[in-house]
Design a protein around this nucleic acid. Structure first.
Length: 273
DNA sequence: CTAACTCCCTGATAGC
DNA sequence: TGCTATCAGGGAGTTA
């Protein structure tokens, strides 16, 4: 569910709701494991800490406290919500009770998400942050030339390449299809056959799509919710994703759908070559 | 190293 | 109505 725009939307929502540090009064975790087990003994150190800032790296949320960093990944169906009164819902797994009386609650039906607490200064040492590519809005490192050079001699499709977090972070299945539509490149095109010019377009389209999606508060197909509970409005602006057999907004041709390396992909056979 | 597959898990939906 | 099969926005582990 959550790609960069969704994670960033949650981050901004939390920042807006907690502009000043808030103290953690208590933390409670459920007994079902997420991607990794969440032990009460590993999170009890958060009691008494103040939540100071909300960051993001790739699709990971970084909740900074006085001495620790909470690393949170939403998997496919994870969400952070703020409640005045904590009335547990099904699939609630983590409750962070704040001094203000509000509670931050993590809900995740499929439990593909991640929640771990590490020493603040060492958060980048976590294995999750090894081998990650550049951020899409890092103009120094994410550019056409970088993708061009990285792709030489490779056989993967451009869609697999773009979704690989070692190439660039934050792009998942929805936005990969959208980016490639804007770039006029078919998702199954082998990366080795693309030119520097193609990659320049792919880079600028990536930023364009991600920026627009963030402005709209992300994309809700089914589960995604902002921290305040609203859905993401970018669903209404999707050009190809989830539009199989519908007409291309640009040329009118039918949008095609196929599995590419195991994921549903959408494209216009007329606009994308 | 790369690339393709499989699995983790629950819920929604389509088809019979 | 009720059953079964398939699919879903991610990522890690295995295999060749």
């Amino acid at each position: 569910m959550p790609e960069l725009p969704e994670v960033e939307t949650v981050r901004r929502g939390l920042e807006k709701l907690f502009p000043k540090p808030v103290k953690i009064k208590a933390i409670r975790v459920g007994n079902k494991s997420l991607r990794e087990e969440v032990k009460a003994s590993n999170v009890k150190c958060l009691k008494g800490q103040r939540l100071r800032s909300f960051g993001r790296r790739a699709k990971y949320l970084l909740l900074e406290t006085d001495d620790f960093m909470i690393i949170s990944h939403l998997g496919m169906t994870g969400s952070w919500r703020i409640f005045e009164k904590s009335k547990a819902r099904i699939h609630d797994h983590i409750f962070i009770h704040l001094d203000s009386g509000k509670s931050l609650v993590y809900n995740d039906p499929r439990r593909f998400g991640l929640f771990k607490v590490v020493q603040k200064e060492k958060w980048q040492d976590s294995p999750q942050f090894k081998n990650l590519g550049p951020e899409p809005f890092d103009r120094q490192n994410f550019k056409g030339k970088f993708l061009y050079e990285k792709s030489r001699g490779r056989k993967a499709s451009i869609k697999a390449f773009l979704m690989d977090q070692k190439t660039v972070v934050g792009i998942g299945n929805i936005y990969a299809s959208e980016v490639l539509f804007l770039s006029s490149v078919r998702p199954n095109c082998p990366v080795n056959s693309l030119s520097l010019k193609d990659f320049d377009r792919i880079v600028s389209s990536s930023r364009q799509v991600l920026r627009a999606a963030m402005s709209a508060g992300g994309t809700t197909i089914r589960d995604f919710r902002q921290a305040g509970g609203s859905k993401g409005a970018f669903s209404a602006q999707l050009l190809v994703y989830d539009r199989e057999s519908e007409n291309c907004y640009r040329c009118g041709n039918q949008i095609l759908q196929a599995q590419i390396v195991g994921r549903s992909s959408y494209w216009c056979p007329q606009c994308q070559k």
